[in-house]
Design a protein around this nucleic acid. Structure first.
Lengths: 196, 196
DNA sequence: CGACACTCCTAACGATCGTTAGGTAGGAGG
DNA sequence: CCTCCTACCTAACGATCGTTAGGAGTGTCG
């Protein structure tokens, strides 16, 4: 019985901001309620536990990353590993800059999920990371990428990308698009054999 | 009156492991005490608050990063920006892999410090990041690095490097040295004009 | 009009939090 | 032997935690 009403979405939105700013464990149900101008007990008309709120946020973020990556690589022009990696990087940056708070909660707070839910998200994270890794492996196979450890290179890239969620500010010096451009360039240069 | 006895150091060590595994806010003083086989109240014979323990860990980590970077760039051969960046990356990876728990607490939990201490650490972090940024700027000035946004490139690199603290395991597939080698390579390729 | 769903309230529950007070056992140094 | 110090103990403090129980107001739909 998952509630999807407007108030329920407001809870996720407000909680994302607080979890992002202070962390899940340091944010109380009363903090979230206060931001919504209601009593803590009233939260339980919409959610069944604090962890449910975290899961809902993390779930939505995971889905956003998956959908964005799938859409970016569905493009027929993304058959070339170099183009595909560029598309993956760009898609990842776009998801983060579109909702940095939700994204940073996804990246940093998922360990506070219950074991079952944590495992489920972990599996999806592994599959997502595998998109990057196998793209790098494909590039290595055709000689487009410089010989390296594909798994390590994927981790290098993804941690750099996820870091954006921790420092990005919508009113900052660089727009999401500019960051995406720069990060695509850095990623391709780090890996390509002749990307100049 | 900062205590520096053996027991005090044990507290930092045990607390680093717990803060790394569960986060500062989700770790209780009783958790730390239990890992030391003493009562929670007995902790206060050695520390004056839970936050003191966090600060002590973060402080030590900050000093380790600063010292390692200073030693790496003191080398006369590090006058070339490319060599200097390589030395900075290698030094950073070494500090992390030498004590990943302390490093990850430094990277992820410092926001739970009191405002004054947080600011002090923030200033030191900024200075440390400036080492990377100015090295990149120096490389740009002599044409050794591909034209890019130096501040953004430094952030890209540092977040990728700090990510190591979150996934590195001493008994993992790759040794700290191997990781350092790969990351130096990825960093120089990402930035250099002709690093092949 | 009546039923129902939605949203929020007050009050309170037991658990756990960081921390303090006050005391004791054991070893070191005079 | 006596004193001091270190390291630990039991007991408890007030605060805050996530959560439940039970009720009330409001709007919608038949």
């Amino acid at each position: 019985m998952i509630e999807t009403g407007a108030r329920r979405r407001e809870i996720d939105e407000v909680a994302s901001g607080l979890f992002h700013a202070n962390g899940y464990a340091a944010t109380s149900v009363r903090d979230i309620a206060k931001a919504l101008d209601i009593q803590a007990a009233s939260m339980y008309a919409h959610v069944s536990s604090k962890e449910d709120v975290l899961f809902s946020i993390v779930e939505a973020a995971a889905t956003a990353f998956e959908r964005s990556a799938a859409a970016a690589t569905a493009d027929v022009s993304a058959n070339d590993p170099v183009d595909r990696l560029a598309a993956l990087v760009e898609a990842h940056v776009e998801v983060i800059t579109a909702d940095p708070e939700r994204s940073s909660v996804f990246v940093t707070e998922w360990r506070h999920l219950s074991p079952g839910r944590r495992d489920a998200i972990g599996t999806r994270r592994d599959a997502y990371e595998a998109r990057f890794r196998s793209t790098i492996e494909d590039g290595l196979a055709i000689g487009a990428f410089h010989a390296t450890d594909a798994a390590l290179a994927a981790t290098f890239l993804l941690t750099a990308l996820n870091g954006i969620a921790t420092w990005y500010r919508p009113d900052g010096r660089l727009s999401g698009d500019r960051i995406a451009d720069h990060y695509v360039d850095l990623a391709l240069r780090a890996l390509s054999e002749d990307h100049r």
